[in-house]
Every structure is written in structure tokens, then in C-alpha cells.
Design a protein around this nucleic acid. Structure first.
Length: 820
RNA sequence: GCCGAAGUGGCGGAAUUGGCAGACGCGCACGACUCAAAAUCGUGUUCCCAAAAGGAGUGUGGGUUCGAGUCCCACCUUCGGCACCA
């Protein structure tokens, strides 16, 4: 008997598949389409890790399963190839970032191929190549034309370690998402994409994504941060009725305002404090605030500090003069940067008022017992309005809109919706990214590079000294002529956030070689949306939000027919070892290559898919890997030992009885289960356990029983295993004398007829406890089953002396006798 | 504080609509094969009780139901996200 030698088999079939272009995309339009996609990797210098191996294993099962089920499947791969590490390698080791990246990309492709994954490599995209990034520039110009790309001066997030700015989404708890350094603020002129124009649609679209995890949708909703309320405009008489607008979610408490607070960065502050007693103190305070990091500034337990400006605003409804304060707890980048203080009905305002001895005015009373004054805490529940002029007695819920509308009628504000989402800052002061295709001309201002002049290529004559943006050191790059007037002009030296690259790569795969436009609308519509997108949860608000934004913009531009890119999202869990995430510092890293070397890719894939459902964390277990290897050997032997069967002519069509009939039932039950678990639930672990049960049944099948069904079961077994372990199944298929690839086989259908059993074992319960088992014909009626159950010796004994109150019969399952 | 997910044997996990809790695998124990071991094949393996009979049992406490891991109420713990958000 031939031994199972994974190394030999795997390289043999990988070469064969590549040679026969087995996984070239099937374009047969008579078949339903299926787009299976795994997030493309950043080709780091370290090669594949287990996390990669897990995503690709999951994606490959899905792609292979769909192909066998008659779909034309798009299953591409690429590289998210721009990014900081390449540039840092250039700075630290003097290597060329492009060469370095291409070398790593090759390594990734090689390692992915060793896994036996069924990609159509012809559609490979690498974002760092001009063929790709010229269309980043093309798309940037499209955004610009549509008024969705703009430049503005703003306080932006600055990562001192990466020496570049960051988008809000890339700051996690005040730290850089990439290097974990504390982020500071810098005032710079930068390019932004107007994602806030799409806030409502990005929010609303989530409701149409039933196949996305709740968790991810919740995170996006949270991030978009919609809140409904009102703008209230206060005039400042001493500044010629200049207005300060506040945003509030509680316009019903408007009569309870006893002070107002503006953020230290609020543009009106200098005028408010000019010539006032506190002027120098406040200026000093503002300087302090600027020096603080994001963490210090927004920490919940930071002491609330404020100063009265000495200026007053006029209450829009009562005409009262309200003192204006400056305080650290009001943030310039949320709402309007100014808030109204209602200490009686807001906890934070209450604390602040207590600390600075500001008046507290109750304007909402609960039903029943009135509040005891002075208050010991803010009353934030519902109630009836008091001290609120014409709104007295009104329920506060009604007052919310009544007061907001009254403000609108009197031109002092009105109902509004506020979002937490900010525009996406895409400028980066780094070399290894897509140059932003803009030119600055003294005469014409900001001029876009004409589309026919694209790509704006990254120059090679740059200095990597880690001190400045290398692009600024290239004279040939910076100096150019104005496309509009032809005079000398300067190029923009910022490059794009690499999340720009990955926001549309899944569209590019559908037409990856197009040299005119990013993609042909017909081709993209032939495949989008992605039917199953698989990747890590870490992109819940980054990549996944940006991609949704791009899709909506391109939908509006008429370039694609769908406005949501990913119909179904599968977020795979982490790979842990000994309860911790694998990491170099922990020293608990298991190398995919070593596992492949020792057991083969099939074993590695099999273990990963069997050990846990894909969306849960997976604890790596060496013993578990051994077990998987053992199982594949078990399957191998089962077929190798019976190889002679396949040389004979199949002998089918006989009536099956006994063991043969039972094996056929198990086979069809397995087909049903595996089909459902993969196709409907993505539960590969339970699909595999069903296959294991079939193998156990095949081992237990008597030697002298019918061979034809045994042979058929072995063939189906190999087909069912093919999506999980493509190499061993291909080899076994060949061993069975088949000419074509097993991966071109049709997925087996189950025969409902075969599932029918003559007899079934049911449980007999007394008061819900199982007391006896009973085998009855499947055809037995309820009455017969009940009668038989009550006749069992043991049951008769146990209910003796009791009254049977009720008997419940669940056909095929159980009988429950209620007796006391 | 708000939002989301999850708590099941020694371990990973299963139980699709309320119907025999613990499938499948790991580990462990025993047996067969072997001079012996490995490999393999087989048997057993939730806990308590020496075994049987019996009892307990899906984070905790209540409830609905003939019947609850599954549904309802209240809580506890863990993980993840957001947070001076006005």
C-alpha cells in the first residue's frame, strides 16, 4: 500500500494546477456568479503568519464549494503594497522600497501557493505599481470633480513616530493604530475626503446588510455617532450681536440654561476675552490645552477646569444674560464647539456648576413627588416642564420638538442632526504611497493634474533621511509646469493614505488589466457585490467604512450598480497559542511554513478549519494538529486499502438491505449536513465532524457487505473533503482511476429517499426524565407509540400507583408521560 | 456610563424551529496486534455514589412550559468597541 506523503503530493498537484490553469476564473455567464474574497495582505518582511493562513483557508473552502456547486467564481488575490515599513527599511537599511516590497510580494505569493489556495493569479493586483496607483489618482480627481476632495487648514492628528498625520479612524484611544505612539495635534493644510456627506447613507445602509455581524455594524453606527437634537443660537450684544451656536440633544431643557461653555480653540474666544480681567489667564490656559496630548485632553477622569470669559450671551427665549465660560471639557471637533449649561438636568453640567458655584435651575419635574432642592444630583429622567414660559406643563418629550420648532420659527436655531464622523484626512507626509495629483500655481491656484497626464509617478531621486517627506527632496518631482497656464508650478508632495488604495481594489479585480479606466462598469457589475468577504475585525471602522463610502460615491457617479460592496461579511477570530495572541514578544509564534513542512498544507488547513468556527478565536494545539494528520492518514488508508475496488466495473442498481442500506443512509445524511453547514452557515468545524462520522461508519462497515455502496461512499467522501484538503483528495481521486480533477466534480446531491429509516429509537420520559428507550417502526401512529410506551415493563413499574394525567407524543423523538 | 458578543466535561467545541445535553476531536484509561515499543484497530470516558438503582448538571436566582443550554425577568463574570459626544 502506498504511503501518504504530503510533501510530494502537494508540490506535484500545485504544479499541475498551475500548468492546467485549473483556477482561472470561469466567465460562463449562464452560471450564477459568486465573488469570494479575502482581504489582501500587506506584504511584510516576515511572510505569512497563522492569521493569514486562517483567512485564506476559510476563503478557499468557500470558493471551492461554490465552484463545485455550479457557480462561476471570482477568487482573486493581491497585495496592499504601499505603506510605512518599506519606507522605514529604506531609511534604516538603505534599501529601495520598491524592490523591498516586490521581494516580499513574491514571498507571499509563494507561501500562499504552498497552501494550495485556488486563486486566479492572472488578476493579481499590487497597489504600489503605477498600473494600479494611477487609478487611485484617477479616482481622487473624480472625488475632486464631485466636490468630495478638498484642502483645508485644520488641527489634525500627528504621529511623531511615523512623522505623518492620521485620520480620526486611525487614532485608537489617543494612540497611533500602527505604532501605538501618543498622537498630538498639529495645525496643517491637508487634503480631506468629504465622507461626512455620506454619513446618513453609511448609517442607513447598515440596515440592509443582514449578513454582516451585529458587532461590526454596531461599531460603525457608534463611529458615525448620529445624534438628533437642535441648534440654538445665542447672540452676544457686546460683540455687535455676533452669534454663538450650540448643539444640544435636550432643547426641552433650554429654559434651564444658566451658563454657556465654549471650547478653548473656539474661534470667538479671543474676541470674547479681549480686554477682560481673565484675558491673560485664559490665554495661558489655551496654550496649556494645545500642549496636551489627545489622551490627557479627553480622559474621562480629567478634572473639569474652566474660566469665565467675562462676556455674556443673550438667552434666545428669555432674554436673560448668560455668562460664557471657556472649559477643557468642551471639544472643538464635536458639534459646534460650544454647549449650553443646564446643571439641573445634565450630570456633567451639574458637576461643573457645583465646582464653580453657578446657579442650578430646575425646569423638569418628575410625575408625582417634586424634586427636593437644592438638588444633590442632576435629574435626567422624563417629566413635565416648569419655569419654561409658554411650555410649562408640557411633557418633556413633546417639548423636545416643540421648542426646537419654535427656535426655527424665530430664526434662532432649530432641529438638527449631528454626527460624530469627521471628514477623512487622506494626506500623508510620506514617500511610499500614491502621489496626490495636484499642482500649485501662483497664478491659477490649485490645479488638478489632467487625467491624460496620469500617472504622477513616484520619483527615484529622493533622500531617505527620516527627517522630512522624501518627496520634497526631489527637484524633478516638485518642479513642474501649470497644466492650466504653462508657467512654473509646484507639485503636491503629500501622498495618499493607503486606505485609499484598499477602498476599491475589490473592484479592480474584476478588470485588473484595464489601462484606460479603473474598471469597465460592465465587468464590475458582472461580479459585485462581493458575496462573502473575509477578514479581520480590526478593520471594522477603517477599511470597511471607507470601502462602503467609495462604493456609494462610485454608485452616484454611475460607475457601479450596487451601493454596498460586501453582501456578507465574515470576520475571522484570532489565532491564539496558550490563550494569548501569537506574537514575537510573547515567543508563542507557530510558523505556518514549519507546519506545512512537517505535516503538509492539507493538515494545517484541516486543523484550522476543524478547531473552531471561523468567527471565533482559535487556540492553537499541537495535539490537535497531530489529530488532523491522523485523520487524513485514516482517510488515505481507507482508500488505499481498497484501491482494487476501483479497477472493477461498478455494480450498481441493486436493492440495498441491512448494513448497505444503513451506509447509504449515513452517506446521504452526511451530504445533507455538510452541504448545509458550508453553504448556509460557514460552520466548517461541524461539516468536518460530520465527515469524520462517515469515515467512522466506513471503518465499521463489514467486509462481507455490499461493495457497490461502499465504493460509492468512498468516492463521495473524497468529493466532500475536496474543498478542505485539495491535495490529498486530488491524489486519492487519481488513485481511484479518475481522469479529471476532483475539483471539477459536481457537488453531490442527497437523496431524501435515502434518509428514510424503517425504525427509529425514541425516548420514553416520565415527567420529563428519560426512563426507557423504545424502538418503533417509523410508520407507527401516535396512538401506537403511546400504547407501546405505556406497556414497557419498566414504565409500568414506575407509574404504578400514579395517575397518568397526560401523554405527549413527539413522533420520531419521544414520549413524555405526565403522572403523579 | 453606553453598545455588542460570550459563559456548556480535564481541553477545543456540538446540540438548525423548545424535544434523549456533551456529536466530532484532543487528552486519559483499558484491550487487541507486538518479544517489546511506536503506529494501527477497538472499548470506555460529565460529575456524585464501590457497582447497580438513583441523584445532580449548560455562570447565578426566579418564571413560562408536559418538557428550557435554547423563551421571559433580574443579576454575576469575561472579552471587544465607544466615551468629558453636549
Amino acid at each position: 500500500m502506498k504511503e501518504y506523503t504530503p510533501k510530494e503530493i502537494e508540490s506535484k498537484w500545485q504544479a499541475h494546477w498551475a500548468g492546467t490553469r485549473l483556477y482561472a476564473t470561469d466567465e460562463d455567464s449562464s452560471k450564477p456568479k459568486y465573488y469570494a474574497l479575502e482581504q489582501f495582505p500587506y506584504p511584510s518582511g516576515d511572510g505569512l503568519h497563522m492569521g493569514h493562513m486562517r483567512v485564506y483557508s476559510i476563503g478557499d473552502v468557500i470558493a471551492r464549494f461554490r465552484r463545485m456547486n455550479g457557480y462561476r467564481v471570482l477568487h482573486p488575490m493581491g497585495a496592499d503594497a504601499f505603506g510605512l515599513p518599506a519606507e522605514n527599511a529604506a531609511i534604516n537599511r538603505g534599501v529601495n522600497p520598491g524592490e523591498w516590497t516586490l521581494k516580499n510580494m513574491d514571498r507571499f505569493v509563494k507561501e500562499q501557493s504552498m497552501m494550495g489556495v485556488s486563486y486566479d493569479w492572472d488578476r493579481y493586483v499590487a497597489t504600489c505599481l503605477p498600473e494600479y496607483y494611477r487609478f487611485n489618482q484617477w479616482l481622487f480627481l473624480l472625488f475632486y470633480e464631485r466636490g468630495l476632495a478638498y484642502r483645508k487648514k485644520a488641527f489634525v492628528n500627528w504621529c511623531p513616530d511615523c512623522s505623518t498625520v492620521l485620520a480620526n479612524e486611525q487614532v485608537e484611544n489617543g494612540r497611533c493604530w500602527r505604532c501605538d505612539s501618543e498622537v498630538t495635534k498639529k495645525e496643517l493644510e491637508q487634503w480631506f475626503l468629504r465622507i461626512t456627506d455620506y454619513a446618513e447613507r453609511l448609517l442607513e445602509g447598515l440596515d440592509r446588510l443582514p449578513k454582516w455581524p451585529e458587532k461590526v455594524k454596531a461599531m460603525q453606527r457608534n463611529w458615525i455617532g448620529k445624534s438628533e437634537g437642535a441648534h440654538v443660537s445665542f447672540s452676544i450684544p457686546e460683540l455687535e450681536d455676533e452669534r454663538v451656536t450650540v448643539f444640544t440633544t435636550r432643547p426641552d431643557t433650554l429654559y434651564g440654561v444658566t451658563y454657556m461653555v465654549v471650547a478653548p480653540e473656539h474661534p470667538l474666544v479671543p474676541r470674547l476675552i479681549k480686554g477682560k480681567e481673565n484675558e491673560s489667564v485664559i490665554l495661558e490656559f489655551i496654550e496649556q490645552m494645545k500642549k496636551q496630548t489627545e489622551i490627557e485632553r479627553t480622559s474621562t477622569d480629567a478634572e473639569k477646569v474652566g474660566y469665565p470669559t467675562g462676556a455674556y450671551a443673550k438667552h434666545p427665549l428669555t432674554g436673560e444674560m448668560i455668562p460664557i465660560w471657556v472649559a477643557n471639557y468642551v471639544l472643538m471637533d464635536y458639534g459646534t464647539g460650544a454647549v449650553m449649561g443646564v446643571p439641573a438636568h445634565d450630570e456633567r453640567d451639574f458637576q461643573f456648576a457645583k465646582k464653580y458655584d453657578l446657579p442650578i435651575k430646575v425646569v423638569i419635574q418628575p410625575e408625582g413627588e417634586p424634586l427636593e432642592e437644592p438638588l444633590t444630583e442632576a435629574y435626567t429622567e422624563d417629566g413635565k416642564l416648569v419655569n419654561s414660559g409658554p411650555f410649562n406643563g408640557m411633557n418633556n418629550r413633546e417639548a423636545l420638538s416643540a421648542i426646537a420648532e419654535h427656535l426655527a420659527e424665530t430664526n434662532q436655531g432649530g432641529p438638527t442632526v449631528n454626527y460624530r464622523l469627521r471628514d477623512w484626512l487622506i494626506s500623508r507626509q510620506r514617500y511610499w504611497g500614491t502621489p496626490i495629483p495636484m499642482i500649485y500655481c501662483d497664478a491659477c491656484g490649485t490645479v488638478p493634474v489632467p487625467k491624460e497626464d496620469l500617472p504622477v509617478l513616484l520619483p527615484e531621486d529622493v533622500v531617505f533621511d527620516g527627517k522630512r517627506n522624501p518627496l520634497t527632496t526631489s527637484e524633478t518631482f516638485v518642479q513642474t509646469t501649470c497644466p492650466s497656464c504653462g508657467r512654473e508650478a509646484r507639485r503636491e508632495t503629500d501622498t495618499m493614505d493607503t486606505f485609499f488604495d484598499s477602498s476599491w481594489y475589490f473592484m479592480r479585480y474584476t478588470d485588473s488589466k484595464n489601462t484606460e479606466v479603473p474598471f469597465d462598469p460592465e465587468k464590475v457589475n458582472n461580479w459585485l457585490p462581493v458575496d462573502e468577504y473575509i477578514g479581520g475585525i480590526e478593520h471594522a471602522v477603517l477599511h470597511l467604512l471607507y470601502s462602503r463610502f467609495f462604493t456609494k460615491v462610485l454608485y452616484d457617479a454611475g460607475m457601479i450598480a450596487v451601493d454596498e460592496p460586501f453582501a456578507s461579511l465574515l470576520t475571522q477570530g484570532m489565532v491564539l497559542k496558550d490563550g494569548f495572541k501569537m506574537s514575537k514578544s510573547k515567543g508563542n509564534v507557530v510558523s505556518p511554513l514549519e507546519i506545512v513542512e512537517k505535516y503538509g498544507a492539507d493538515t494545517a488547513r484541516f486543523f484550522i478549519l476543524f478547531a473552531a468556527p471561523p468567527d471565533r478565536d482559535l487556540d492553537w494545539s499541537d495535539a490537535g494538529v497531530e489529530g488532523s494528520y491522523r485523520f487524513l492518514n485514516r482517510v488515505w488508508r481507507l482508500i488505499a486499502q481498497n484501491e482494487s475496488l476501483f479497477g472493477q466495473k461498478a455494480d450498481t442498481g441493486r436493492e440495498l438491505t441491512g448494513d448497505a442500506r444503513e451506509l447509504r443512509r449515513i452517506l446521504h445524511q452526511t451530504i445533507k449536513k455538510v452541504t448545509h453547514e458550508i453553504g448556509e452557515r460557514n460552520h466548517f468545524n461541524t461539516a468536518i465532524s460530520a465527515i469524520m462520522e462517515l469515515v467512522n461508519a466506513l471503518y465499521a462497515y463489514p467486509e462481507n457487505a455490499d461493495r457497490s455502496i461502499f465504493r460509492e461512499a468512498l468516492e463521495k467522501l473524497v468529493i466532500l473533503l475536496a474543498p478542505f484538503v485539495p491535495h490529498i483528495t486530488e491524489e486519492l481521486w487519481q488513485m481511484m482511476g479518475k481522469q479529471e480533477s476532483v475539483h471539477k466534480e459536481a457537488w453531490p446531491a442527497f437523496d431524501p429517499e435515502a434518509l428514510v429509516q424503517n425504525e427509529v429509537e425514541i425516548a420514553v420520559q416520565i415527567n420529563g426524565k428519560v426512563r426507557e428507550k423504545l424502538v418503533v417502526p417509523t410508520s407507527a401512529s401516535r396512538d401506537e407509540v403511546e400504547k407501546q410506551a405505556l406497556q414497557q415493563d419498566r414504565i409500568r413499574m414506575l407509574i404504578e400507583g400514579k395517575t397518568v394525567r397526560k401523554v405527549i407524543v413527539v413522533p420520531g423523538k419521544l414520549v413524555n408521560i405526565v403522572a403523579n
